[in-house]
């Protein structure tokens, strides 16, 4: 039971491995989406679930990754462009991290949101000043290759989240969540730990943004930095449950399937369901699906 997150991750990888063998491009697309949300939700949990600093601006890392990737594709192989996207997101996190992480509680939540929107508008301004209204990319890798990369990122994010939670580093982050002042008093280097967690949670979204860009082969800043991405990540993680590694996986699986059913035909209805589920889970199931299953497991 303890390692169920890892088991789920491995199971997903196995399923993904089976898909290209007999799957349709549509199936590969679904796996790509599911893996993408798992990677994003796990990365988010590295900072927000461990420290309690709820980030409502993770779209900014996704967007930075996508932007760097679109600027570089064509000049270097896409693998290197993805890496550059991840590095750019991490560097961005390192630069803004110290001032942003001084702000606590609800202010941190709205600050991350505002920061993401600020970067979105700045990039939109830059792009329109350059006379570009969306960039097309040619020569994108095959869907199968992209799917493999995304599944790899999802596994990497899950392993990373697991490793952080079960390390000395993670214990320090948990201390910050419980009582930051007390943690600092007993010698936990809170500033450094928070900054590391912030950077760690930015890396994979940077690469994910690049991959998602290659899949759609079209870059438009309003979409790449869409606040709906941040909102979806938070909803998935909170609905899945933030106390365990399997939580974000459960949340991402559930919503990615729901989105397959509703997003293309009834996007507004999908958003309404997302909002309703979030409210219901915050009020009635604060420990999320993962907590719910845990309780059932113990009862049975």
């Amino acid at each position: 039971m303890k390692n169920i997150g890892l088991i789920l991750g491995v199971a997903l990888a196995v399923v993904a491995a089976a898909v290209p063998a007999f799957g349709t491009p549509y199936m590969m697309g679904v796996v790509f989406q599911v893996a993408m949300w798992i990677a994003l939700a796990q990365s988010w949990s590295m900072l927000s679930a461990t420290t309690g600093y709820l980030s409502l601006g993770h779209a900014v890392f996704y967007g930075v990754g996508a932007y760097v990737c679109v600027l570089l594709t064509g000049t270097i192989p896409f693998e290197w462009a993805l890496l550059a996207g991840a590095v750019a997101a991490a560097v961005f996190a390192a630069i803004v991290g110290l001032p942003v992480l001084r702000v606590r509680g609800p202010y941190f939540v709205i600050l991350t949101y505002g920061l993401s929107e600020l970067v979105r508008h700045v990039v939109m301004r830059i792009e329109s000043a350059l006379g570009s209204f969306g960039r097309m990319i040619f020569d994108v890798p095959r869907t199968e290759v992209l799917m493999w990369w995304m599944v790899g990122l999802a596994v990497l994010a899950t392993l990373g989240a697991y490793a952080i939670r079960h390390s000395r580093f993670g214990a320090g982050l948990a201390a910050i969540r419980e009582d930051e002042v007390a943690a600092e008093t007993v010698g936990v280097p809170v500033t450094r730990l928070k900054l590391f967690a912030f950077i760690a949670s930015a890396i994979i979204p940077g690469a994910v943004g690049g991959l998602a860009l290659l899949r759609t082969s079209y870059f438009e800043p309003a979409q790449a930095f869409d606040p709906v991405i941040s909102f979806t990540i938070v909803t998935m993680a909170l609905v899945g449950g933030t106390e365990t590694v399997r939580g974000p996986i459960l949340g991402a699986l559930g919503f990615a399937l729901l989105s397959e059913l509703l997003w293309s035909s009834l996007p507004q209805l999908y958003m309404i369901v997302l909002g309703l589920t979030l409210i219901i889970f915050i009020l009635f199931v604060p420990r999320g699906l993962s907590g719910l299953f845990g309780r059932l497991g113990r009862a049975g």
Binding site: L54, G105, V109, F231, T235, M271, I282, P286
Partner: peptide
Amino acid sequence: ELAKRVEANSLILFYGISVILQNL
């Protein structure tokens, strides 16, 4: 458990309400 972090929780909660109102 919610009242403990009522400000951050209510913010996320109201974001949910906002999304619902807009899309309705």
